[in-house]
Amino acid sequence: MAEARTLAMSESEEIVGRPSMKAPFSVGLLKAAETRENIVLLTADLGKYTDTIDFRHKYPERFFNVGMAEQSLVMTAAGLSKAGKISYCTTYGTFATRRAYDFLAIACAHSNENVKMFAGNPGLTTGYGGTHQANEDLALMRSIPNLTVIDPCDATEMVQVTQMAADIPGTVYCRQLRANVAVVLDPDTYRFQVGKGHVIGQLHDDTKLGFVSTGFMTERAIDASRHFERAGVSSAVFHSPCIKPFDTNGLLRFANSVDRLVICENHVTTGGLATLVVEALYEAGLSRKLLKIGIPDRFTECGSLPYLQDRYGLTTERIIEQTDTWMRA
């Protein structure tokens, strides 16, 4: 058996069982930049690891590396926005949110600046431990007024979000999926919409099980849902790429059509998607049996991604196992 290992920052996992796309952020950004000459790209010395190389080569005069200084990254982006630019930024999610929180809140969101932060290493997509795993970033970002918060599912959504971020008013925080990214949603038929969720699968009058998911957990929720369908348990998925604005009405329609809800997120289970769902159900007076699958309230350790995702229940197999046990209890 091959030994599991922690990936170096320039490496990426092989995608097994689905087609993939290389550097979808770069693909979407280059499409946007072709028609928007005021788009600029900034990085905090992490361009190699956030898929910025193609843009840097094509538009060197529109690319800025501010060095290992995330607060300066955000302030420079805000200043360029005031000068009429649309400032795309890349760094890791832990650095964007923990080190530059006040700068994103006041210099950007407070002034509705055209700053689009694409934050890598969301949750357990890196094996580099608590210093690099942005496990609580969605909770932090959704608490800031005037901020749009997005957690894309796959390469299809990553390309679309990146391309259209220039047209989303004000400041955007988007979790970045980098390197080789699975293609889960059909690029010919799927269209990302700000503030809208998407039902995947068929809802019936007797649908028993509803998965509510965001980010890469939607891929796993879809596979788990299909497993239960094959086992005779009617099931569907509500994919919510937008954490803010959240599609409360869509979620409630979905919840009204199922008996039980399983919430799947690559994030701590407080402050993110699970909290949004619980708040929506409570405020609507709707009661549903509910299972939360996500990262516990702790700093997660270093390790290989297969090990970490299995340990914390984020794989398809562990979602199925946890859901089956819960339904039988």
Rank of each mutant, 00 (worst) to 15 (best):
S26F: 03
R191G: 04
N38A: 00
T6C: 11
P245K: 03
A166N: 06
E14H: 08
T125V: 10
F238D: 00
D205P: 06
E11T: 06
T323N: 03
L30V: 05
L261V: 11
R318F: 01
E265G: 14
P296N: 05
Y92S: 01
A109R: 02
I86R: 10
L314P: 09
A329I: 15
N256Y: 04
F63T: 07
S87F: 13
L73Y: 06
P245M: 06
L209S: 06
S26A: 14
G84T: 12
F246G: 07
R5S: 07
H227N: 03
Q71V: 06
L305M: 03
A119R: 13
K82D: 13
R260H: 12
Y190C: 13
Q322V: 06
G303F: 00
L124P: 04
Y312K: 09
R253Q: 13
T214Q: 09
I319H: 08
G271N: 04
R311W: 00
A83C: 12
V233R: 15
H57R: 15
V268P: 08
C174Q: 01
A231P: 05
I243M: 08
V194Y: 00
T148D: 05
T323Q: 06
N266F: 00
G215C: 06
E279K: 10
I168R: 02
L203K: 07
D223C: 09
V40E: 07
E70T: 00
I150W: 00
T171A: 06
A44D: 04
L305C: 05
M164H: 03
K82V: 06
M217V: 07
Q163A: 14
V199H: 04
S12N: 03
S20R: 14
L252S: 05
N121T: 15
T325N: 11
M158H: 01
R298G: 09
